[in-house]
Amino acid sequence: MQAHSDSNVYYVPPPSIWPLVGSVALLTLATGFVLVMNKIAAGPYVMTLGMGILLVMLFGWFGTVIKESLAGKYSKQVDSSFRWGMVWFIFSEVMFFAGFFGALYYARNLAVPWLADTQLLWPGFSAAWPTAGPGLKTVIDPVNAWGIPALNTLILLSSGATVTWAHWGLQKGNQRQLKLGLAMTVALGILFIGFQIHEYAEAAFSIRDGIYGATFYMLTGFHGFHVMMGTVMLIVILFRSLAGHFTLEHHFAFEAVAWYWHFVDVIWLLLFVFVYWL
């Protein structure tokens, strides 16, 4: 038998109301969304309510976590739990994107050529990409990869660099470099979103324009949504580093956000190659 020190005790948090609040939030949000989609007047209100509850929950929950973290309740083991958790969360996101990329691959390389072979039903249709399909008469004028998309690639790549630079600052104990790096990353993220919105506004086709429009907006939109989430997360940790929350040993939140940001970055590169360029 061997004695264990208290540092061996894994922190088990006391009962918490936030998970329940989170479930109520998602139920309300989902109900609201269903109502909105079916054009029932109450929809937007219910959805807003759900959003509100969700925000309360996020603030409450993450607030608690930050408090516990600052109170030093998280041992090394808890820290590594967080790491594993984040890694597998990102993995699940990778699979989510893989599904949409799979759809793009399938539609472009299999379905469209098959349709072109089906002259009995779709006379005169020939396989080409981009296409809005044999039944819609739209001609698609795609976004030029070497315009805004290339610029956005540059922006995201540099934001990856700035966040790494911020991390170096943290590791060297240079808080100024940390804050500056984060601030630059946030700015680049916002810039990216701005350009993306501009691109959507300028685009000559919509999500309704056949399979090209569908895959284009689904992939870029879903990615754009992730960039927004990532930017919000960056802003949160920017404020936390301004408040001096991160130390050499204790900065899991920073790393989690940085990983997430790199992941968003890599997805963009795939997007650039497969959606815009090729």
Binding site: A132, G133, I207, I211, A214
Partner: peptide, 17 residues
């Protein structure tokens, strides 16, 4: 609800996908 054609052949999609 949003007008995509992932699973509609007329829009170049495929129900089998």
């Amino acid at each position: 609800h949003f007008g995509t054609h992932f699973f509609d052949a007329a829009g170049g999609g495929d129900p089998i996908m």
